[in-house]
């Protein structure tokens, strides 16, 4: 069998379709055994791999507009896999996988120095300030494919890596080395009732994500589609999560621009 080609798994989120319902967040929490507490009101202390931001154009009625922006881990590629968080981890507890483009986190290796959190401009890395406690009986409903995390370690969105492994196992059993587009999809993608999230291999022209983004792979995956943008493009983090919108103000909200006077 041929060796599989390198993948660059990525996501494009249509912000004009997103209604801010939060189904992606719920699906993510259920899929990835994300802990919660009785009082989770302080969002800076809680864990949510997928977080939905609420953006406003700041104009008064009738020109007021809002936009919901779901933010998973951006799985930055940086320059040659030099993503902001991976290079700083002192214990090699996080890794940029050149075969999939996924930034992983090894929970049992992480010792909780939190340098990666300081490095990530998107705040996707979150700390387990408490040990997880599941309501009576809920531990039976946990996903057996995803390990739960202990207090004192950092965690983040993995693009549902366990689903990738499961799909790959199945393919191997069937004598295949390549996955089809629908074989590996993240929980948030499947849960979105508006179909706003599209997930797939940015390297594969047959995948929808590639067709929408038209990534310029020679330039860090910059989108060729003018309606597509990435968060903080100027920093050079080269994220693999893209956003699609027809609204100018939303596109502008994605990056810092110096106002020219």
């Amino acid at each position: 069998m041929d060796q599989p080609k390198n993948k660059r798994y990525g996501m494009v989120i249509d912000l004009d379709k997103c209604t801010g319902c939060g189904a992606c967040m719920v699906a993510c929490m259920a899929e990835n055994n994300i802990p919660f507490r009785d009082d989770d009101t302080d969002k800076l202390l809680s864990v949510s791999w997928m977080h939905v931001y609420r953006l406003s154009n700041g104009k008064p009625f009738p020109h007021a507009e809002e936009c919901f922006l779901p933010r998973p881990c951006q799985h930055c590629e940086g320059e040659h896999g030099h993503s902001p968080c991976v290079s700083v981890c002192p214990a090699t507890a996080t890794d940029y996988d050149m075969h999939t483009g996924i930034v992983s986190q090894i929970y049992t290796r992480c010792f909780g120095c939190r340098y990666c959190m300081a490095a990530c401009p998107y705040h996707v890395r979150q700390f387990n300030w408490w040990d997880p406690v599941w309501p009576e009986g809920m531990e039976r409903a946990l996903n057996p494919d995803v390990s739960v995390r202990m207090r004192g370690v950092v965690e983040k969105c993995s693009f549902c890596y366990s689903r990738y492994q499961t799909a790959l196992n199945r393919a191997y059993l069937e004598g295949r080395r390549e996955l089809s587009e629908e074989e590996y999809q993240t929980a948030c993608t499947q849960a979105c009732p508006a179909g706003a999230i599209v997930f797939g291999d940015l390297n594969n022209p047959a995948h929808r994500v590639h067709q929408i983004v038209k990534p310029d792979l020679a330039h860090g995956g910059r989108p060729r589609n003018p309606k597509v943008f990435r968060l903080l493009e100027r920093l050079g983090t080269h994220p693999k999560v893209y956003y699609l919108t027809r609204r100018d103000w939303v596109r502008r909200a994605g990056d810092n621009e110096i106002q020219k006077t």
Partner: peptide, 26 residues
């Protein structure tokens, strides 16, 4: 005191990532 899992603090030496400034510091 600062690390989340103090019992694993030795990982910084054992599994050192030589590209991290914190490794060099440690």
């Amino acid at each position: 005191i600062d690390v989340g899992q103090p019992l694993r603090a030795w990982f910084i030496f054992w599994h050192a990532n030589v590209h991290s400034m914190l490794t060099e510091v440690a």
